[in-house]
Design a protein around this nucleic acid. Structure first.
Lengths: 122, 122
DNA sequence: TCCACTAGTTACGTTGAGGTAATTGGTTAC
DNA sequence: GTAACCAATTACCTCAACGTAACTAGTGGA
């Protein structure tokens, strides 16, 4: 008998998995990983597709994802510079769950808007 | 010919679905909805289970979820006061995706920690 | 010669998220 | 009758997140 599954739990404040949840349960992360699911993309492309994101926040988001091993950074020695980002294997396993979140928001927003109106009218 | 699916997209900054994504793609939301998937719970229970959350943030999180129609609030006219929170039908459809996110964080945290160490050592 | 192009980085100011602690209301205990 | 108690909310303050804008590098083109 051996317990091979470590008892991580995001519910415990001191559990490292909490830091990972905080990173992935994030608006920009969900959008970035969703887009990168279609294949590698340049920094500029991501900035265009993630409408409204600032360069600073995109840089930080991508660096954090790279640090956690969810994406890889491909730098080309060209002028002007070209950098492409790509989901790793680990990142790929996160693509479907995060895409599901984006799809949920789009699918149910009409109902949510009605609920908000009703709530605010009370 | 009719286009029944509205073309919402979280990628557009002005799309309302973006506000919904911002709400659900959130650490505390993911944890709260995951816990509430086990059945209705009192405020105090949630505060205990969502280890580390402050009363203020829990209140705000729950109020926002109620506003969007993801949970309902049951108030009992007792002393001391008792309030229970419960997922709505809409909230239930979000339980699995958000639980998946929590599970992902717990399942892959070991690998993530290794990646972080490697990155920081560069 | 000087500007554009790309992927950043940095400085600075503002906004918002979050924690701590006091407060409310009504009932029980002394 | 007044002090204690509990669930829940609010007031206040702090700090981190975010946006804007300026700046970097090196080459190619007008």
């Amino acid at each position: 008998m051996s317990q091979t599954v470590p008892d991580w739990s995001v519910l415990m404040a001191s559990c490292p998995s909490r830091t990972s949840l905080a990173r992935i349960a994030n608006k920009w992360t969900a959008m970035a990983v969703s887009v990168l699911g279609n294949g590698r993309a340049r920094f500029g492309d991501l900035k265009t597709q993630l409408d409204g994101i600032s360069g600073k926040v995109l840089t930080e988001t991508l660096r954090d994802l790279e640090r956690d091993g969810l994406i890889t950074r491909h730098v080309y020695a060209e002028v002007p510079p070209r950098v492409e980002y790509e989901l790793t294997e680990l990142g790929l396993t996160l693509h479907e769950p995060l895409l599901a979140l984006c799809r949920w928001a789009e699918k149910h927003i009409a109902e949510v808007l009605i609920n908000r109106e009703a709530y605010d009218a009370r």
